[in-house]
Design a protein around this nucleic acid. Structure first.
Lengths: 189, 189
DNA sequence: ACACAAAACATACGGTCGTACGTATGTATA
DNA sequence: TATACATACGTACGACCGTATGTTTTGTGT
């Protein structure tokens, strides 16, 4: 940090880089990221990016962290004012649809794009992705706990439908949106 | 074909190559496939593989076709003797779980691994993957048509749960299996 | 048995990848 | 102001990628 609280040059650069990296990774996966690709897109030098992240794995981890923060701000935070339980679940789903359909990230849901890639690839990146996904499931389960007797099952089912809906939206199938709402209604007593 | 009905050399080689390619692609995605990688794994020359498929896209298409045939043989065909409707759906789900858990393909469900990669990447490979997935959804929907009033919705929901279950199985969560059965029970009247 | 085509191979090319290293340039602290 | 450090860049390296081209091996049909 600087003396007056602004971010250092490096921190600002890191932010600009990871923000764009999240877009690329939601479109083509974290493996679609390359230092050269990012450098070209952002008009900086490849080695400049390398200086800030040292290794590709560090870039992945930073990108995953940025995606998580953006998701929390776009989906979770605006739903928290709603009363816990069914109302908050509806708010979460509504914000999630906006998040996936009018993409916060260019390629749709970040985890739908990257969890299948990393579920067979052990390492810190997979651990981070899985941890975030589990936190999301726990959040859903907590809300279902107010209204149903099998909250883990309902959370798993709702998340499954959201992930599948993301794929359908990527393919241009807007008819999937009412299916999401019908699923939530089915899972609420 | 030979005069007595056997396959030509090339066709047999193609089969051996695509069979292994399906394993690699279910583990690391179709993009994880490379001619050199396949050649090393199979102990043949890189240019030998190139002779048989000409381009990487052709290799992708052949791999996708092989995966589809293997899936039909492992999941669909053995469920067809069951009476249409609920019984056949149970049979399909049972065989699907075997298919994903004791992997027919080393990396689990082929479409769960590759649809998210290709949903933002237009081209013949995406079209083939999407076509196969739609055929699978249509099959499920047809079965649900015998027992429920909204078969498309139920098919979408069941498929979503199966895809999510594949990820969970990849991560070692065997507890997801009963959740699949509970979901099917929920969707049947 | 022979001829021909398919198959398999060896080699080479341009390109991109991730990483390492050296070098300026700016910034914060002593 | 002097010194240490973070940042950004240029360059280079070995590795792998997909593809093209030419040659040799192999199997098949006549």
């Amino acid at each position: 940090m600087t003396t007056d609280g602004r971010l250092l040059r490096g921190a600002r650069s890191r932010q600009a880089i990871t923000r764009h990296a999240v877009d690329v990774a939601s479109l083509e996966g974290l493996n679609g990221l390359s230092l050269g690709r990012l450098a070209t897109d952002l008009g900086v030098s490849k080695s400049g990016i390398q200086t800030l992240f040292r290794t590709k794995e560090n870039l992945h981890l930073a990108t995953v962290e940025t995606a998580s923060q953006a998701f929390s701000e776009a989906v979770i935070a605006p739903a928290l004012p709603a009363p816990a339980g069914a109302a908050r679940l509806h708010a979460l789903v509504d914000h999630w649809i906006t998040y996936a359909a009018t993409p916060l990230f260019a390629g749709g849901c970040f985890w739908a794009a990257n969890l299948p890639d990393f579920d067979s690839r052990p390492g810190p990146v997979r651990d981070a992705l899985v941890g975030q996904h589990e936190a999301w499931l726990a959040l859903l389960s907590g809300e279902f706990g107010h209204v149903t007797g099998a909250p883990d099952l309902a959370a798993f089912q709702l998340d499954a439908v959201l992930m599948a809906a993301n794929t359908a939206l990527r393919l241009g199938d807007r008819a999937v949106v009412p299916k999401i709402h019908q699923t939530l209604s089915l899972l609420l007593p």
